[in-house]
């Protein structure tokens, strides 16, 4: 538990000639292709994992650019029409004095996506370089990335609710902007990127060094 040095006396399923099902935990002989319990595909290591990770990650980063440039919300009232971007929405909330909510939106729409890009890049590069440093921390980082990524969707749902709710003909209407679509795509792509990462590759790097 929690040891940080090389793990002596412990072998991986792969070393024992076994492969564990990623979905249900059942172990099988190495050659088995499909899990006998849940029919999930079995792969001792996903050799194409990093390719998929990079592909989804780059797609996610590209989609994140228009998400920040274009407006998220189109508001028109009696007197004016305005457009607000992700950052614009956060600044508006700060100006209204809603510090807590502004922080939540900022975290969900900026800190989490950007943090996720950096974390996935770090994980992928460290596996490619077969680094043996910070294995435990990297496993934890992966868990956090996988758990927290979906929370970025908050802003998309805010846009959905606001545009459904604020439809008061002449007084005020709110409509979704194109950025909502690219932001949602960015979140979906990075979630797929995190899911494509085979965290078992982190162990392998350290085993090859021994």
């Amino acid at each position: 538990m929690g040891s940080s040095g090389p793990i002596n006396g412990l072998i991986s399923a792969r070393d024992a000639g076994l492969v564990a099902c990623q979905r249900c935990g059942q172990v099988h002989p190495l050659q088995t292709r499909y899990c006998t319990r849940c029919d999930g595909p079995l792969q001792s290591r996903d050799t194409e994992s990093l390719q998929k990770v990079w592909a989804w990650l780059i797609a996610g980063m590209i989609a994140y650019i228009p998400a920040n440039i274009y407006p998220m919300l189109l508001t028109s009232t009696l007197v004016e029409r305005s457009e607000s971007t992700i950052i614009g929405g956060v600044i508006e909330l700060f100006d209204h004095g809603s510090w807590g909510i502004a922080t939540i939106v900022f975290a969900a729409s900026v800190l989490i996506p950007v943090g996720k890009f950096i974390a996935i890049m770090y994980l992928a590069i460290s596996v490619q370089r077969q680094s043996a440093a910070n294995r435990h921390e990297r496993h934890k980082a992966y868990e956090v990335v996988e758990f927290i990524g979906r929370w970025s969707m908050i802003d998309v749902f805010v846009v959905a609710i606001l545009s459904a709710l604020v439809q008061l003909d002449t007084i005020a209407t709110v409509n979704p902007g194109i950025a909502a679509v690219s932001f949602a795509l960015s979140v979906i792509f990075t979630m797929l990127s995190a899911q494509a990462f085979d965290s078992r590759l982190i162990w392998d790097a350290d085993r090859m060094q021994q």
């Binding site: 909330l93 909510i101 990524g149 929370w151 908050i154 609710i161 606001l162 709710l165 979630m191």
Partner: peptide, 21 residues
Amino acid sequence: PWSMAEIFIVGVTVALIKVAG
């Protein structure tokens, strides 16, 4: 991971605060 009901509720709360004023 794709079931986001809880995230939707947080989104609704944020939206409510934006409109409340």
